[in-house]
């Protein structure tokens, strides 16, 4: 197992290098001279030339790219923000806790709501509950998350005055953002859970368990859900990536000072090292989550463990 994880971690390196290349290229071809943006339109040509020299902006593309990668690998240096002149990594890490809190709470909402509703819908197929849940699910995947966030603010903050609309000053402040980000993923998870459960529930071993008088609750949770879990976990992993992307929007709506919002602010300020750093950072998070999902498979389905064990040799 440890060997497998190590192998996967090593495989992640070229992918992240590729990501670095993609964002670096994207920022390189962006029109506009960062030196002019930072120093202002009134800067003298000499000042701009000196700045370009200092930041290494005059070097050829590949030289700059390799310098960038070298900095990351050897010094954990993701570059320096044009605006604050501070290291990008530090700035990202100081905002990371807010993004992690948002993503974790949203994932909790998504998994609890999605799996519960999905299981109930499957067990009570074609009931009123099932139909209602299906419609809510269909609407959920059709809604832009930022709009849902604004509507929740309208209802719960402006009219009912139950919850705060923006900021991160305490537990109460996280309720609306995590509902917003979690709900849309819950809809996808619910749809997958329902269809997987329906498939599993028809299997013979479920009938066997019933025949031997097993408690229905145990049958549903232990026999059925566990075997339906693999595709559900795949969807949860995909949804987590969506959440990392969606956090960009939700952080904007609720004024949460997280990594996503930092990226948008940096784009507007043309602070390219920060844009590169945030994209790379969010992608690395996504890759780690995917690895976590793959490891989780082996705990749920022992067959997969032996498969990996065979692969290793």
């Amino acid at each position: 197992m440890a060997k497998y994880i190590l192998k996967r971690l090593l495989m992640m390196l070229p992918v992240l290098l590729g990501v670095a290349f993609v964002v670096f290229t994207l920022m390189y071809i962006t029109p506009g001279d960062p030196a002019k943006v930072i120093l202002g339109e009134s800067a003298t040509p000499e000042a701009i030339a000196a700045f370009r020299q200092e930041m290494g902006l005059d070097n050829p593309f590949l030289v700059r790219f390799f310098d960038y990668v070298k900095g990351i690998i050897f010094h954990f240096d993701f570059g320096t923000s044009y605006q604050t002149k501070k290291p990008v990594l530090g700035e990202i890490l100081s905002r990371f806790p807010d993004t992690v809190t948002l993503a974790a709470l949203s994932a909790l909402v998504a998994v609890v709501v999605g799996v519960t509703l999905g299981v109930i819908s499957a067990v009570k197929q074609y009931s009123l509950f099932d139909n209602l849940a299906s419609i809510i699910g269909l609407l959920g995947v059709a809604m832009p998350n930022f709009w849902m966030g604004m509507m929740l603010v309208l209802i719960f903050a402006v009219y009912l005055r139950w919850l705060p609309a923006s900021g991160t000053y305490g537990p109460k402040y996280w309720i609306l953002p995590s509902l917003t980000l979690g709900f849309i993923s819950a809809a996808s998870i619910m749809r997958t859970t329902r269809s997987q459960m329906l498939e599993v529930i028809r299997q013979d071993y479920i009938d066997t368990a019933r025949a031997k008088g097993q408690d229905e609750m145990v049958i549903i949770l232990r026999h059925a859900l566990r075997n339906a879990m693999i595709p559900i976990i795949t969807v949860i992993g995909i949804q987590f990536g969506q959440m990392l992307g969606g956090s960009v929007l939700v952080e904007t709506v609720f004024s949460i000072p997280g990594v996503g919002r930092y990226m948008i602010d940096a784009i507007k300020a043309r602070d390219y090292p920060v844009v590169q750093g945030t994209v790379l950072f969010l992608s690395a998070c996504f890759s780690f989550v995917n690895l976590g999902v793959d490891i989780l498979y082996t705990f749920i389905d022992p067959k997969m463990k032996t498969m990996y064990a065979k692969k290793k040799s």
Partner: peptide, 18 residues
């Protein structure tokens, strides 16, 4: 694989920004 390692919305934002 590289493009899919970037969360979809983040990739679209980065391309649009560029």
């Amino acid at each position: 694989d590289v493009l899919m390692a970037i969360p979809g919305m983040v990739l679209a934002v980065a391309i649009a920004a560029s």
